[in-house]
């Protein structure tokens, strides 16, 4: 089965806007979803300049862009992806 990939932007803007809080996902995700989700830090995704810095931090769950990302929003997105995959 293809894994869902979560990419957390670690660029300057996202980091100061809250990405530093998202590192907890590294522990939460495997506990809840086991091996079906991969989590990665990435250097600037560039959404802060191409979209809006006010919407940072940005996280990518596969190809879905999550703005103003929080742990809850990311977890919800992952669940949605996994559920869609099962249907």
């Amino acid at each position: 089965m293809k894994k869902t990939v979560v990419k957390i932007c670690m660029g300057t803007t996202c980091f100061v806007m809250g990405a530093s809080e998202l590192q907890e996902l590294e522990e939460i995700i495997p506990k809840k979803f086991g091996n079906s989700v991969d989590i990665q830090g990435v250097t600037c995704l560039d959404y802060c300049s191409s979209c809006s810095e006010a919407q940072a931090p940005y996280v990518l769950v596969d190809d879905e862009v999550i703005n103003k990302a929080t742990i809850e929003k990311v977890m919800e997105a992952i669940e949605r992806k996994l559920n869609n995959g099962q249907e």
Binding site: C9, M10, T12, Q23, T43, D46
Partner: peptide, 25 residues
């Protein structure tokens, strides 16, 4: 710089590997 690392990675086709975990602030 994240953008700078991306730029070099893109131009030279060398991947960058990142960690999620920050150290300190």
């Amino acid at each position: 710089g994240g953008t700078t690392a991306n730029l070099i990675s893109r131009e030279l086709n060398i991947p960058v590997y990142n960690n999620v975990r920050s150290v300190g602030k």
